[in-house]
Computed example of a mutant assay.
Amino acid sequence: MSEDHAPWQSAVHRDLAQELLRMSGRRSLVHPAAGLERSAFAILWVLSDGRPRTLRELTAELGLEQSTVNRQVNAAIKHGYVERFEVENSLSKLIRPTEEGSKAFRRDGLLRAQRLEQVFADLDPGTPQALLHELRAFNDAYERTQHRHGTTDSVDPYKKGLG
């Protein structure tokens, strides 16, 4: 192993790690005019399929600690973006977006989509489709490796397709 890319197997592996760090530093392509905090957007992203969730389900889908998700949900409730409600014959309350939360999600989602369109317009070389294909393949391989080795990391809340 050459010292110029240690501890990485090769210069390509080192450079890929560097690019992944650059991406993770952005966390998401948030537009400066976005009103939602990243955590509220992530919660609303999970709930955007129209199915309310328990706190435990949100915790699993966001890949975070339950105490963290509980704190984030409480903050989103305080801002009027989500609400808890009771369901007959269930011990757990469910969480769903409020009308205000749905509007804020659509507004901020549109801003994020516009930002991505600007980035894709400048993507050279490559295409959004090629990037999606490679990122999906990378994430799938990463998750398979985690399962084989019995390890887990936090799952990116945007893995369902958000950029």
Rank of each mutant, 00 (worst) to 15 (best):
S102N: 07
V73K: 03
R96D: 11
P97F: 06
V69M: 09
F138L: 08
V87M: 05
R84K: 10
S67V: 12
G80P: 03
R96E: 12
T152D: 15
S92W: 15
L91C: 00
K93A: 09
G109Y: 08
Q66N: 12
E134A: 02
R96H: 10
G80D: 06
R115N: 04
D140Q: 07
L47N: 02
I95F: 02
L110E: 14
P157Q: 03
L135S: 02
T127F: 12
A76R: 02
R71Q: 08
R136Q: 11
T68W: 12
L91E: 04
T98M: 10
S48R: 11
T127H: 11
Q72V: 03
Y142V: 02
P97E: 15
L111S: 02
L94G: 00
P52V: 14
T127M: 06
L64S: 07
Q66G: 08
V87Q: 14
L132Q: 13
T151E: 14
N89A: 13
R144P: 07
F120W: 08
N89K: 13
G101Q: 05
H147G: 05
L132T: 10
Q72N: 09
T59V: 06
T54G: 12
R112Y: 11
F120Q: 06
D156S: 01
D140R: 03
L47F: 09
F85G: 00
R144G: 11
K93H: 11
E88P: 01
K93P: 00
H79V: 00
R96Y: 13
N74G: 08
D108Y: 08
D49M: 08
R84P: 01
G63N: 04
R107Q: 13
Q72H: 08
S48F: 08
F138T: 03
R51F: 14
Y142R: 07
D122G: 00
D122C: 01
L47E: 09
E99T: 04
S48L: 07
T98K: 05
V82F: 12
E99S: 03
F85D: 00
G109A: 04
H133V: 12
T152R: 15
E83R: 13
N89L: 14
R136W: 09
P125F: 09
L116I: 00
S48C: 04
G63H: 04
R53W: 15
R148K: 14
